[in-house]
């Protein structure tokens, strides 16, 4: 019978193979201390989040910034028509500059929140990358949180870069418009067509459309919205078998979330039921899994020139935390039982 013979070792054996694992078969030189893997580890979540961020970056997602720049250039070339009177023409111009740019930022955040998250888990399963990750001492919660935080990091970085551009453009335009406004305004005051009070009021309105803390807070609220939708997409992707299904369901839930409060108001007024009744409670329970986005519409009002009430930011952050937490726990519950 042919006898098998193992090959001679290579010329230079790697150190790690010469050490403990020379004795692996005998059990010598190996730690017998039982490893205890914590339920979740910040460093491991950070590693997965960093890898997810880099993965999405190398998918050239930041080309979206080009769209942002193109819109800005377009707004400079083609001036949008406005119908404001002379007292608020400057403010109107700034609002028309700001609204499409902030709209693009919101679009970026929502699209990335849904699509990037929906893409990650099904692709890892399809490529069998998930097997190699979960075959390492990686708890499934770490994997989910890492993926979610990677997407959120990308959205945050994207919004940060776009906010810098927006602020720079807005500050520059505000300066030019303010200088024109002051020249024209002073003439109007001198000609007594405007009182000093009118002039000051119009100036305050103009400046409220420039770079303000309210605008920065409104952009942060856009991030909150995106975080909720990303967590929701993560939940859907734990039981969905395709990216398309996750994208469609998450988008649908996002739209429902935008109209849920109005829908409940309509339900109340059309059925004539009062607050606190059993029917109203049933309707609330029915719509409970859908995030209510109405409080987040404050960002649209800030773009229209309103001042962001600082006390709302805390409650919106808390609300975001609760929704994200709820969706992550549900995702974890499903994903732990998932047969991969």
């Amino acid at each position: 019978m042919k006898e098998k013979k193992s090959p001679a070792p290579p010329e230079k054996t790697p150190r790690w193979a010469e050490g403990a694992y020379e004795k692996a078969g005998t059990g010598e030189g190996l730690s017998t201390t039982p490893h205890i893997t914590p339920l979740f580890s910040f460093s491991r979540i950070g590693i997965i989040a960093g890898n997810t961020f880099m993965h999405l970056m190398r998918m050239k997602i930041f080309y979206f910034l080009l769209v942002f720049v193109l819109i800005w250039l377009g707004l400079n070339i083609f001036k949008l028509p406005h119908t404001a009177g002379p007292e608020s023409v400057g403010a109107e111009e700034l609002r028309l500059l700001k609204a499409p740019l902030v709209g693009t930022m919101k679009l970026f955040a929502i699209i990335i929140g849904i699509v990037a998250t929906a893409l990650l888990i099904p692709r890892d399963v399809e490529d069998r990358t998930l097997y190699t990750i979960l075959a390492k001492p990686v708890p499934r919660l770490d994997y989910l949180l890492g993926k979610l935080f990677g997407v959120l990091l990308l959205i945050l970085a994207g919004l940060f870069v776009m906010t810098l551009l927006l602020d720079a453009v807005l500050a520059y335009r505000t300066q030019i418009i303010l200088s024109d406004f002051e020249q024209v305004g002073r003439v109007l005051v001198e000609q007594q067509q405007w009182s000093q009070k009118d002039f000051d009021g119009a100036k305050v309105e103009l400046l409220s459309h420039g770079v303000t803390w309210s605008l920065q807070a409104a952009i942060l609220v856009i991030f909150f919205e995106a975080a909720i939708i990303a967590a929701l997409a993560l939940l859907v992707s734990t039981f969905s078998t395709s990216t398309l299904f996750t994208v469609v369901i998450s988008t649908l839930v996002y739209f429902i979330g935008n109209f849920i409060a109005d829908g409940l108001d309509h339900f109340r007024s059309s059925s004539g039921i009062g607050e606190g009744t059993l029917n109203e409670l049933a309707a609330k329970v029915l719509f409970a899994p859908f995030p209510d986005y109405r409080p987040f519409k404050i960002s649209d009002e800030v773009i229209a020139g309103q001042i962001f009430p600082p006390d709302i930011l805390g409650s919106l952050a808390l609300s975001t935390g609760l929704y994200v937490g709820l969706y992550v726990v549900l995702s974890w519950f499903i994903f732990t039982r998932k047969e991969i």
Partner: peptide, 28 residues
């Protein structure tokens, strides 16, 4: 345990070195 699945693809955006480092970091 070390596991090699059938026809693995790993992350295409990583280099060979980055791939090993990524899995090493996952193991602490």
């Amino acid at each position: 345990v070390g596991f090699l699945p059938e026809n693995p693809y790993f992350y295409k955006h990583l280099s060979g070195e980055e791939t090993i480092r990524f899995y090493g970091k996952l193991c602490g």
